[in-house]
Simulated scan of single mutants.
Amino acid sequence: MNIWSKMITALRGGVNEAGEAIVDSQALRILDQEVRDAGEELKRSKDSLAEIMARQKLAEEKCKQLQKNIEEHEGYAAKALEKGDEKLALEVASRIAEFENGLASEQEASEGFAQSVTKLRAAIDQAEKNIKRLKQQVDTVKATENVQRAQAAVAERHSGSDSKMRTAMESLERIKERQALKDAQFKAADEMAKTSGDDSLKAKLEAAGITTNGPSAEDILARIKNKKAPE
């Protein structure tokens, strides 16, 4: 596989991943639409059932009318035979045959409609149960999604508060460190000021001929001698 083929494959993979991400993000909306679509299909099925039932009713009524026509014309044929008019009786019999053929056709259509009604009724009943069960599951999924969204929000806030707490503690430590440094600087400046003051005073005393040194060895020896001398 050359580089171009690999790039095309990578792009296709990216498109698929993007498509899956969109589907996942809109899963509940898609699910709701699919349930609505199923409901619309069910409605159309019920409309079809109503139409087939209407056709079955019409076929049954035609069968009743044809059966009535057959019985009525059989009476006509019988009366024609009673009068010895066989030709007329045969003509009526021919008409009866047409009615019977029509009756057979309408009965077949009626039976076909009846079978379709039975099958369609069963299919609609099953579809209604499936849609009802699906809606219940959708409600459960939505409730679970809401709970998980709330849990995620709580977890995010908790994580955010931990992060903010760590940031606050770090800021507090930096403030303490800065304050400690300032305090040390103030103490050092104070010590330097005191030392500088002592040196300045000593210099002034020495300039005035006043010694700031302690007693000399000679002074200490004289003091000792004076203590030992008898009074």
Rank of each mutant, 00 (worst) to 15 (best):
Met165Gln: 13
Ala50Met: 07
Glu173Thr: 04
Ala93Val: 08
Arg157Ser: 08
Leu205Pro: 01
Ala229Arg: 14
Ile220Trp: 06
Lys142Val: 03
Asp139His: 08
Met165Leu: 12
Gln56Phe: 01
Ala80Leu: 02
Ala143Met: 05
Asp162Tyr: 03
Glu82Pro: 00
Ser163Tyr: 05
Thr144Asn: 15
Ala114Lys: 03
Gly214Arg: 05
Ala109Tyr: 02
Glu170Arg: 09
Glu60His: 04
Glu100Arg: 05
Glu34Cys: 08
Met1Tyr: 12
Gln148Pro: 00
Asp24Thr: 10
Ala180Trp: 03
Ala207Glu: 10
Leu28Asn: 06
Lys57Asn: 11
Asn146Pro: 01
Gln33Phe: 08
Ala59Gln: 00
Glu106Cys: 01
Glu98Arg: 15
Leu201His: 12
Trp4Lys: 14
Tyr76Arg: 03
Gln137Pro: 01
Gln185Glu: 11
Asp190Met: 09
Leu28Glu: 04
Asn101Ile: 13
Ser25Phe: 03
Glu51Asp: 13
Ser110Arg: 06
Thr195Gly: 11
Gly19Asp: 06
Ala127Tyr: 00
Pro215Asp: 05
Ala180Ile: 02
Pro230Asn: 10
Glu206His: 14
Glu72Asn: 10
Met53Arg: 05
Glu86Ile: 04
Gly19Phe: 03
Ala188Thr: 14
Lys79His: 08
Ala168Met: 13
Ser171Ile: 11
Glu108Ser: 13
Ile22Thr: 10
Ala143Asp: 09
Ser159Asp: 07
